[in-house]
Design a protein around this nucleic acid. Sequence first.
RNA 1: CGGGGUAUAGCGUAGUCCGGCUAUCGCGCCUGCUUUGGGAGCAGGAGGUCGCAGGUUCGAAUCCUGCUACCCCGACCA
Length: 488
Amino acid sequence: MAKNFTTRAENYSEWYNELVVKADLAENSAVRGCMVIKPYGYAIWEKIQAVLDKMFKDTGHVNAYFPLFIPKSYFEKEAEHVEGFAKECAVVTHSRLRARANGKGGLEPDPDSRLEEELIVRPTSETIIWDTYKNWIQSYRDLPILCNQWANVVRWEMRTRMFLRTAEFLWQEGHTAHATEEEAVAEAKQMLEVYAEFAEKWLAMPVLKGVKSANERFAGAIETFCIEAMMQDGKALQAGTSHFLGQNFAKAFDVKFLTKENKLEYVWATSWGVSTRLMGALIMTHSDDNGLVLPPKLAPIQVVIIPIYKNDEQLPMISEKALEIKKALEVKGISVKYDDRNTQKPGWKFNEYEFKGVPVRIAIGPRDIEEGTVEVARRDTLEKEVFQQADLANKIAHLLENIQANLYQKALTLREENTHKADSWDEFKDVLETKGGFILAHWDGTPETEQKIKEETKATIRTIPFDAPEEAGKCIYTGKPSARRVVF
RNA sequence: CGGGGUAUAGCGUAGUCCGGCUAUCGCGCCUGCUUUGGGAGCAGGAGGUCGCAGGUUCGAAUCCUGCUACCCCGACCA
């Protein structure tokens, strides 16, 4: 990726922001740190929702909905959890407004309406869900509970970025309750697999599956599994997490059940989530200087047809052919937009749909009508080719598959080119400085060492990969033995 | 929350140091004509509490004080 998307974009961040604006995905809201997701951006989110929702249901989950407000005291019940989220909560203190007392006009919270207990706008729903689950669970026959919630959450972040970290964001959060530790761990791992499959097959984004180190773990979890992707600037992005919560929340909310053997035991828990950040990942993984590049499987518009005509007499004939093509494509399940607006010129439209990342563009004009052809342009390579109209639908369907595969391969190649091994402290620092990207290195497994490495180099352990080969080595920092490499 | 920066039309900006005529220019928008295979040309037109609140001054976008919002870097995070 070059950095000349616009003359103003001086770094990757600016490039990304420009891209979001030009592709018409979202804009900053008047509300601090929040964003407005525009119709085209939301269409992508709906697609993500639809696919994930089906995958959740295929793995036995059901949807439910829990309250937006959480009583403050719920947070106080799980010590680590409250510590993790306390600094970024929106707090509701009053229930009504009144005219300002100083008589200058305007409104102020009515002091008489002060809430006895403040309500927290959910930053995540573990607490209120576990408070609810307590009432749902008495016996092993009530387990497992496999619920998912599609919702918005609020985290009062210091610094925000569209899609990647907004004060309010949309997500799904799964919360499950199990009778045994093994079952809960299996659930957490299964959902990570679901996320990884979604990322790779739908987003065309290769991910590393693994475990978070203790320092990076979710507040209140025993183990955090994650998928990590590499963006085009070589930086890592956490694209999804799945947590094994052990019995922490069951103990905090006193959720016990009677086993077959009539023994009272605490329930085992998991939670897992992905958010609108996935859209940020999608943008940063594939886009180029001409705008967004969407993988065909997620594009709200997969094919756009643009008529080219000199005068209004030519249009009906072209439209007839274009609509015929549109119909043939739609029969194949391809989503097609025919843009016959006479308010914009063809060149303008070409640019417009490139900004929007539409995978395939078909242009059809008088010349094509005569010769029985169309001009087909693919967004990923920007190549144009003349296709015969005969059997066009099959050719386009094939092309879409081809683009999907190509995007994945391109992203994978980029990751591989930017992943290096380091076997000594000097080599580690050198690679970090000169190459960046992911570094595979040995680590002694202690939080202290991780912390020291972070302090000295700013590098963090992104994940401890599941599929890392067993390989004896020495920690790059302390020289102590290590069984496998981790990803910095 | 620490460091740096910015705020002028829908968007991007000039002007601010050194106060002074009707606040500059480009994109976009509207009207008309000509155009249409890669962001059209010409002509005309509409659009402004110069972030907010005070202050200094004959006079403030410009100087002073306070506030707010946004952007970048860091810490934190999905």
